[in-house]
């Protein structure tokens, strides 16, 4: 009882009686203290997450001059627009391909690192993390030079092995591939570091038990490593999917949506519609378009994580 603290306080209050104490008692209750201590965090969440999100939803339901409430009209207009469907396709193609590649390359890198002895691992880990640490706008600029039609260093390398010049940013499919390449280059180290942490947390004895049970190295990967990493994999993929869907800087720097608006993703298109063309409600509608899909996705992924945690941890 004393560990709780409340009983002792209540007893003291009863002895002295009086209403002055009830305020003191309220202030000393554990739940009150807990609430007060989480208040700064709640303020940050309400101020920087909840309010902007709700305000964004409200904005998307206004007319262009933001004088009238128009309901879902902005969304209806988007659905009927061909350009928007191009953006939708490009966003999905970009996000899904990039996340898959990042996950695969990150997994492969993590495995390579995991098999390097610990004392030599640090420098490799550091070097491999560099792409993720450099501000993306700057590194994308570097890539932009490498893709430059006249001075492309990549094309120069390809010409050495007699591969014809590639119009990296000039043709929309090559531009899409270029954007994915840069995004994967920046994002794969994040997957690598998360998967490396997950790999390190798998007890060595499980692999030994599996080896004795008769598992080949592929079977160990399939039946031990992957199920043991399932939570990290799903959380990382979810997180990366959300972030990649919202990606702006790479497209903005590399292609600015061109050629012919065919490489726009939601964020860059929202910027073009909302800020450059001055239709803020329409821009808000563009950026909010994926919210329901991602929310459903997050719900199922997180439910799986909670279930596995309950069963296994």
């Amino acid at each position: 009882m004393a560990a709780d603290g409340t009983i002792a306080v209540r007893d003291a209050a009863e002895i002295t009686g009086g209403r002055a104490n009830s305020l003191q008692r309220f202030a000393r209750r554990r739940s009150t203290i807990a609430f007060v201590m989480t208040l700064p965090l709640l303020a940050v969440i309400v101020g920087l997450v909840a309010y902007p999100a709700l305000f964004g939803i409200y904005l998307s339901m206004l007319n262009r001059r933001m004088t009238e409430f128009v309901g879902f009209l902005n969304y209806e207009i988007l659905i009927e627009s061909e350009t928007f469907w191009n953006v939708f396709f490009q966003s999905c193609f970009f996000a899904i391909t990039a996340v898959l590649l990042k996950a695969l390359i990150g997994f492969w890198l993590a495995h390579m690192l995991h098999h390097i002895p610990n004392n030599k691992q640090r420098k490799w880990r550091g070097m491999l993390l560099v792409p993720w640490v450099i501000p993306p706008a700057l590194s994308t600029l570097g890539w932009w030079w490498m893709f430059d039609p006249s001075y492309s260093s990549i094309n120069w390398l390809l010409s050495i092995v007699s591969v014809p010049e590639v119009p990296w940013l000039g043709h929309h499919w090559w531009a899409r591939i270029a954007i994915i390449m840069v995004n994967v280059w920046i994002g794969a180290p994040f997957f690598m570091i998360m998967y490396l942490a997950a790999l390190k947390s798998v007890p060595e004895q499980l692999y030994e038990a599996a080896a004795i049970d008769g598992a080949t190295s592929w079977q160990r990967l399939r039946y031990v490593t992957l199920p043991m990493m399932a939570n990290i994999i799903s959380i990382t993929v979810l997180f990366s999917l959300i972030v990649t869907f919202a990606n702006y800087d790479i497209v903005r720097v590399l292609t600015n949506g061109g050629p012919r608006d065919l490489t726009h993703v939601f964020a860059s298109y929202a910027f073009q519609v909302g800020i450059l063309s001055g239709n803020i409600p329409r821009g808000a509608a563009v950026s909010l378009f994926m919210l329901p899909f991602l929310a459903v996705c997050a719900f199922f992924v997180l439910r799986g994580v909670v279930r596995r945690n309950k069963e296994q941890m």
Binding site: P203, A209, I212, V224, M228, Q312
Partner: peptide, 14 residues
Amino acid sequence: DIAMVFQNYALYPH
């Protein structure tokens, strides 16, 4: 063709 019992059991948690 051996089987081993480990100190911390090493059961597959999943």
